[in-house]
Design a protein around this nucleic acid. Sequence first.
DNA 1: TTGTAAGCGTTATCAG
DNA 2: CTGATAACGCTTACAA
Lengths: 334, 334
Amino acid sequence: MERAGAATIEEVAARAGVSRSTVSRVLGGGDRVSPQALEAVRHAIAELNYVPNRAARSLASRQTHAVALVVPEDTTRFFGDPFFAAIVTGINARLSRSDHVLNLFIASDDPGDKATSYLTAGNVDGALVVSHHTSDTFVERINQSVPVVFGGRSPRGREDDYYVDVDNVEGGRIATRHLVERGHRRIATIAGPLDMPAGVDRLRGFREVLADAGLAPGPVEDGDFTADGGAAAMRRVLAAGDRPDALFVASDLMARGAIGVLQERGLRVPDDVAIVGFDDSPVATSLPPRLTTVRQPSRDQGEAMTEVLLARLAGLDPPHATILQTELLIRDTA
Amino acid sequence: MERAGAATIEEVAARAGVSRSTVSRVLGGGDRVSPQALEAVRHAIAELNYVPNRAARSLASRQTHAVALVVPEDTTRFFGDPFFAAIVTGINARLSRSDHVLNLFIASDDPGDKATSYLTAGNVDGALVVSHHTSDTFVERINQSVPVVFGGRSPRGREDDYYVDVDNVEGGRIATRHLVERGHRRIATIAGPLDMPAGVDRLRGFREVLADAGLAPGPVEDGDFTADGGAAAMRRVLAAGDRPDALFVASDLMARGAIGVLQERGLRVPDDVAIVGFDDSPVATSLPPRLTTVRQPSRDQGEAMTEVLLARLAGLDPPHATILQTELLIRDTA
DNA sequence: TTGTAAGCGTTATCAG
DNA sequence: CTGATAACGCTTACAA
């Protein structure tokens, strides 16, 4: 039955005994259509198994009903970090209640800027951007041509940008405060990339609490949010001498890498070195020791970003900034 | 400069002093166009920063220049298994050399069959399907409405299907043979899902080698290709009594889960129980012990699948079956 | 080699 | 509430 050449609106109209326009109205929400017509059209649509042609619709309405998710990372990191899985899940959840579809752009996979021109050429109604670095200039170009919502405070802190972020500064604070309250005094940190707002903000929270407590911060090394990066940073911290008795590590993946190094050196966690991670991603609990960590609601973040974008597309005026709260989860490592 | 309303072909034509058709021809490859016209058009395109409107193009040409990747799994597994990362990387690599874009459908996220109707409605030129289970009936519907290429031998083994697979039977054989040659005699296996060709085939290779060696297979438990599933299967194997001295585990992720259980029980790998995994995914080497495993070229598989699909779309006649070879990588666990 | 003109399937405008 | 009719931007015979 389902032929390759699907039914057209014309056929539906004929079948229902109405005009194209009426069918189109039904498609658009069924407003301003008589009950009988509506019924007839719905019936015809069902019988013919009709699905509107997206290209035609988009050409006429000047809307694509597609939104892009732009990730300025390489595929390895995109798939390697559960953070993205959570974000995508949230986006999908909200999108499945709309009639928009998702186009995925793992930007670094695309040397020729194909993604950028695709987006600026109006092939999507809007874009969601996560994990952006200050050095990602193409993001700015995208931001100028289609509505975008950032996951994370916008790179340059522009007033008119839209973003959904978690309270990273406070997250850094509660992690560090926990360590201080446990009596640790030589507290180091493995920070996120300092060209990313999340990296900067978590570090800031860390520093604030230490300053308030009158403690000098231990070594500060930055990783790249990967397990390997965390391991390397841990080695540098250890090499700096005067071993810390606790660490705030700005992501669970990095914390895993760091713990691996500690264990190699025969150091016990948390007895010799306590660790607080960040994310509460699956790796926090997938193997022992279970990470004490700061939970950030990434799935909600994805959903909220999509909500804001959809609102903008609908012509509404959502808040420019949405901040989600974090929470300390005390488990085995601190 | 880059206004929201981008330049149209009409404007390019005017600028270049030619007709729409000529511009269109240049877009289509520049054949049958005089050198001067070609030059003029290219110039105009560059000046105007023109990018063709995809909706219009697709409406007129009845091609979408989009291909779908359909994954009948949930987001968690999609992001949790590095296999998919490799597949997507391969697909992207091939696609970036074409003018097609990728639409991602993580099918189980979409309860209302939105994905299926999207695809059957002709919104993509073709589809790539990986990780399909025999129970996934919607795959059949998709297969009937657009050209598809399967990653993995097609579910029902239909002659006219197109697929790119690795030689899973042989993979199972070389893994098991290695164990036999090392002198192990009580060899069990944690198989993949038996409703998936990859699961079935690897198990078959395992059984063949054992039969040839005159050995009785130890317990056969199936996991679901996840670390947790592997752990659960390992517990069942152990509970079955008569502890095996070696295991062939049909995926690295499951092997990790299994090793975790073994370690909990104070069993040493490979001394007490040897393990051969399958995939050579990043988790094989990300932490000790480094897995002895069967490497499957997943990135190449993604690339080859795309190649075949693109060939079909171009009207060529690529081979129905493409088989990629596997290879044993001997490391720490067997 | 080039231009003309007829669609492609929808939506949007505007009378009725 | 409904139906013509004109776009939307591009490809593609067909003619020149």
